[in-house]
Design a protein around this nucleic acid. Structure first.
Length: 428
RNA sequence: GUGGACGUAGCUCAGCUGGUAGAGCACAGGAUUGUGGCUCCUGCGGUCGUGGGUUCAAUUCCCAUCGUCCACCCCA
């Protein structure tokens, strides 16, 4: 180990070449999935004014209180690296008048930043795929988004994910319930831990979520939010559950599920797994009917979810479902006087003649032996050989590196035809 | 922010109660004068995270610091 070599910032990871193929495959699948449901991509800045997050996420949330990367730019303006995607998306929609068209469906993908202590499945820079739908008040769109995620698991070959779902009701119902809950918890004040006592003042609903055993016992006897929903939210929730049942999606109603961000109303849900240790939430979302108006836009109901890419990739790996890297179709071996130049030109002709061809040209010289070794390690299915003999006779060697078969001697036109077959017969 | 474990070659790791370092993989070359995958041989590669302390002597013991991992908290 060298001495004071500069290292990456804690919790911010490089994605190395052996990992990027899987990421690319997952990203392509997500793009495809979103488009398959009529969602359009929106690309948003990574930096926003601090005020946006303070207002949308909530002043007393952990994210705003202690996890944001906030700084002053040269004008003295307070800016923050986005800790999540919804706030910026809503801001952009308001700013550009996108919400005058009802039924906007949007998706985005990119890095988010939170200053937390890193651990498995939790990083300071992480990536989310997010989806938002605006102007649609009914449970049909909630269901659509949950079905979208269920389809994703299926397409990735993932099993065993658990859907937890709950309703937080209208802001009014939530406020009334909050009072009930605070009264109840005050009655058990002695049994609450320090954190929960503090939240009693700031955000009592989150006490429901506590992992503290003693607090959990207290919470078990608390009044249930689901029993105090307003009629409209109740109907919304019931319909959503019915839609899920009809679609064959299993769910677990979890009355203690409370999402961390303040802006949620009515539907909240999480997809969780027990295969990722403590950070088992792979995807989470819900409805936030009040946020758009709160941020100064036209009153607009909205639903969305976010999915953690690092967690999804980790789960794929744990499940043995990581997408494979796409090896080259062929490796061009070049040895002998004049074959470098001829080879480079040949490779260009082949790439033009065979769209989709993944062809690696040997660079840096080396003996036949060394070059075949590289060809093998590249994972290529075929070696194309251009040596002095081939150069003189205007032919090419074509040798299978994976299965059975002898090396053949072909002319260029025949080679092109063979490469077409290789490219179109799928992965070797 | 709190707690615990761990930092030895590019990677995965060994190194018993202190005597200045090893293996496998990878990489390069050879056995095979134009042909990989198996085998064998050779070679390259480390101021043992960093700084300080104890000691005749520290990779080994102590302290600090940085980093990694796991958990708490919280969340994707």
């Amino acid at each position: 180990m060298a001495k004071q070599r500069i290292q990456a910032v804690r919790g911010m990871n490089d994605l190395l070449p052996e990992q990027t193929p899987a990421w690319q495959a997952v990203e392509a699948l997500l793009r495809d999935l979103a488009q398959g449901y009529g969602y359009a991509e929106i690309r948003l800045p990574i930096v926003e004014k601090t005020e946006l997050f303070r207002r949308s996420i909530g002043e007393v949330t952990d994210i705003v209180e202690k996890e944001m990367y906030t700084f002053e730019d040269r004008n003295g303006e307070r800016l923050t690296l986005r800790p999540e995607g919804t706030a910026g998306c809503v801001r952009a929609c308001i700013q550009h008048g996108l919400l005058h068209t009802p039924g906007r469906r949007l998706w985005y993908l990119g890095p988010m930043f939170r200053h937390e202590r890193p651990q498995k499945g939790r990083y300071r820079q992480f990536h989310q795929f997010g989806v938002e739908a605006f102007g649609l008040p009914g449970p049909d769109i909630d269901a659509e988004q949950i079905l979208m995620t269920a389809r994703l698991w299926q397409r990735l070959g993932l099993e065993g994910l658990r859907l937890e779902i709950n309703s937080l009701g209208s802001p009014e119902a939530r406020r009334d319930y909050r009072r009930l809950l605070v009264d109840y918890l005050r009655g058990h004040y002695q049994r609450l831990d320090e954190d929960s006592r503090r939240r009693l003042e700031t955000n009592p609903l989150r006490i429901l979520d506590s992992k503290h055993p003693e607090v959990q016992e207290v919470v078990a006897g608390a009044p249930r939010l689901l029993d105090h929903l307003d009629a409209e939210s109740r109907a919304h929730f019931e319909t959503l559950l019915a839609l899920l049942r009809e679609a064959g999606v299993d769910y677990h109603v979890n009355p203690r599920l409370v999402r961390g961000l303040d802006y949620y109303t009515r539907t909240v849900f999480e997809w969780t797994t027990d295969r990722l240790g403590a950070q088992g939430t792979v995807c989470a979302g819900g409805r936030y009917d009040g946020l758009v108006a709160y941020l100064g836009g036209p009153p607009t109901p909205a639903v969305g979810f976010a999915l953690g890419l690092e967690r999804l990739l980790a789960l794929l790996e744990a499940s043995g479902r990581l997408p494979e890297t796409e090896a080259p179709h062929a490796y061009l071996v070049l040895a002998g006087e004049g074959t470098d130049r001829a080879g480079l030109a040949l490779a260009e002709r082949l790439r033009s003649a065979v769209p989709g061809l993944r062809l690696v040209v040997n660079a840096g010289g080396g003996s036949f032996k060394a070059q075949f070794k590289r060809a093998d390690r590249s994972g290529a299915a075929w070696a194309i050989v251009l040596g002095e003999g081939e150069l003189a006779s205007g032919t090419l060697g074509f040798k299978p590196l994976r299965g059975e078969g002898e090396q053949e001697t072909l002319d260029e036109a025949t080679l092109v035809a063979r490469l077409h077959q290789v490219v179109h017969s799928g992965p070797a």
